[in-house]
Amino acid sequence: MASPTKSYVPHSFFLIALLLGPSSLATAADFSSSVCTGMLDPSCCFQVIKTIPGGGQAPSLESLCGTAISFSLSKGNQIHKYVQSLAASANNPKLKQVYSTCVQNYEDFIGNLQSAQGMLKSKDYNGVSTMASSSMTDWPNLALTSGGTTA
């Protein structure tokens, strides 16, 4: 089974983890251009911004981070529900255990996103960065249990 999150969640948190920091939240007329030109791969940065609905029109990095978190949270919740349904319908005990582990990983991932969302609202940018990093740390577990990698 291919990982349905592969094209959404890591791209969104790639942006947050690399770009969000207390000193990087200055608003600029064309902030995406100024941010992306400082990246190792500016074209990848621009592509990531384009994959987030409304990302290219975000007026500030803070706004883009909020949009990326909301988008990732929405996709994470959709996939979580899907994996829950797979776990509930699995007849093979080993497969059921794999799906159950995946469900738990998504619950952790969603919890991190919700924390990041609250921290962004309270302007705790270091906390948002920490939660983004934590979510990215969870990502290999999500990819493995979702079938995103092969052994």
Rank of each mutant, 00 (worst) to 15 (best):
A2W: 01
S3I: 00
T5K: 04
T5V: 10
K6Q: 12
S7W: 09
Y8I: 15
P10C: 03
S12V: 07
L15N: 01
L15F: 08
L15M: 10
I16F: 04
L18Q: 15
L19G: 15
P22D: 13
P22H: 05
P22Q: 07
P22T: 06
S23K: 12
S24M: 08
S24N: 14
L25D: 06
A26G: 15
A26V: 14
A26H: 12
A26W: 04
T27Q: 11
A28G: 05
A28H: 10
A28Y: 08
A29C: 04
A29M: 08
F31N: 07
S32P: 11
S32E: 09
S34G: 02
S34N: 12
S34R: 10
C36K: 05
C36Q: 01
T37Q: 13
G38S: 02
L40P: 13
L40R: 14
D41G: 02
D41S: 14
S43V: 14
C44M: 14
C45Q: 03
F46E: 12
Q47F: 13
Q47S: 13
V48S: 03
K50R: 12
T51L: 12
P53K: 03
P53G: 06
G54R: 06
G54P: 04
G54Q: 03
G55P: 03
G56F: 05
Q57Y: 01
Q57N: 13
A58N: 06
S60M: 03
E62Y: 05
S63F: 04
L64R: 06
C65R: 01
C65D: 11
G66A: 05
T67E: 11
A68N: 03
S70K: 08
S70P: 00
S70M: 05
L73I: 02
S74Q: 14
N77L: 14
N77Y: 07
I79D: 15
K81F: 04
K81M: 13
V83W: 04
Q84Y: 00
Q84W: 00
S85M: 01
A87D: 03
A87C: 07
A88T: 07
A88D: 11
S89G: 06
S89L: 05
A90D: 08
K94S: 15
K94G: 14
K96N: 12
K96G: 11
Q97V: 10
V98S: 14
V98K: 13
V98W: 02
S100T: 15
C102T: 11
N105L: 10
Y106P: 01
Y106L: 08
F109R: 01
I110V: 09
I110K: 02
I110C: 01
N112W: 07
N112G: 12
Q117R: 10
G118S: 08
M119S: 10
M119Q: 15
K121F: 03
K121C: 00
K123Q: 11
K123N: 09
K123L: 05
Y125F: 13
G127R: 07
V128P: 08
T130I: 11
M131C: 10
D138S: 05
D138M: 08
P140N: 08
L142E: 00
L142C: 05
A143N: 03
T145E: 09
T145G: 03
G148T: 03
G148V: 04
G148M: 00
T149N: 09
T149K: 07
T149V: 13
